[in-house]
């Protein structure tokens, strides 16, 4: 599988990152098989978080066995110094590792959170101490929030080595600032910060729970994913062709093999084909009826 430099870290990540939340939905034996399956394709970057059910615990046995083959990303949603330290120690313990390669601020959502994280007694103080002690190697950030907030975080966190954010043809087709994650990608690339793409496989929001109760959803993702092999391949190729370091696999284990296949076969996507996917998504989502043309 193709690899790309993860910013300044010196690590070359595979073009697919395994989103280990998928392990949460499997029994231990299935989780072990899934990790072996993913490693068989050559994937070398795994991403986990303490909030992904028991994914850390399910990952632990195989992580112990294959630690050297895996660049491990983990996260904390804690915003203050104490909370971040506690959560880091808990993750090290649950994962059974001595070090996490990439430790990320998880799900940055509001300006005030950025103030807290970067301020005195904020989570980043804990991150930096842990880095000095050799418990983590690199500092990253993840966010589904406004691109302007992520850009702000890039400005304010000097030792940031990676950012994780949404990118797919639906988002790329929207011109407003709220969806301009391409600006984040450009800035990260300018500053040689690694980029990890999420929501690559998101098709649309789930219907209202009155219409489709949560228990009746056919996938465990927060959104309705695309699910045919061709659509998975299109979405992977799109995300990988935008210039991201790596595309994070979708959270539902039913989709993982299709994504692995797409990642293994990835061979670029020309610009006319990229536009074709943006255009298709734009019309699926269009408020204007009766469009004969593109």
């Amino acid at each position: 599988m193709e690899t790309r430099p993860l910013g300044n870290t010196g690590h070359d990540s595979t073009v697919m990152t395994f989103g280990t939340i998928a392990l949460n939905w499997l029994e231990q034996e299935g989780a072990n098989q899934m990790v072996e399956h993913v490693l068989d394709y050559g994937v070398n970057h795994f991403d986990v978080a303490p909030t992904y059910g028991d994914a850390e615990l399910k990952l632990e046995p195989k992580l112990r066995q294959h630690r050297e083959e895996i660049f491990l990303g983990c996260k904390t949603g804690e915003r203050d110094y104490e909370g971040a330290w506690q959560r880091l120690e808990q993750s090290l313990d649950r994962l059974g590792v001595e070090k996490i390669d990439l430790y990320q601020v998880h799900g940055l959502e509001y300006d005030e959170e950025l103030d807290e994280i970067t301020g005195d007694g904020g989570a980043l103080e804990a991150f930096r101490e842990a880095k000095a002690e050799g418990l983590i190697d690199y500092i990253g950030l993840t966010s589904h929030s406004r691109p302007s907030l992520i850009l702000n975080a890039i400005d304010r966190i000097d030792d940031l080595e990676s950012v994780m954010f949404p990118l797919n043809p639906v988002v790329a087709g929207k011109d407003d600032e709220e969806h301009d994650y391409e600006a984040v990608l450009r800035r990260a690339n300018e500053e040689n910060i690694g980029t990890l793409g999420i929501k690559a496989f998101a098709a649309e929001s789930w219907p209202d729970t009155d219409e489709l109760p949560e228990r009746d959803r056919p996938f465990c993702n927060w959104y309705r994913p695309v699910c045919s092999p061709d659509a998975i391949r299109d979405r992977f190729d799109f995300a990988a062709s935008q210039g991201l370091t790596s595309v994070v696999s979708a959270g539902d284990p039913k989709l993982v093999t299709m994504i692995l296949e797409a990642a293994a076969d990835y061979d670029g996507l020309d610009e006319a084909a990229q536009r074709s996917l943006i255009e298709a998504a734009r019309h699926d989502d269009s408020p204007v009826p009766e469009q004969l043309h593109h």
């Binding site: 084909a273 536009r275 074709s276 996917l277 699926d284 009826p289 043309h293």
Partner: peptide, 20 residues
């Protein structure tokens, strides 16, 4: 220059053409 290749004829296009 090539703008789209392939051209995505979506369900909404096809329904607009059926209406036409």
């Amino acid at each position: 220059r090539t703008l789209l290749d392939p051209v995505p004829w979506t369900a909404s296009h096809l329904s607009a053409h059926a209406d036409a």
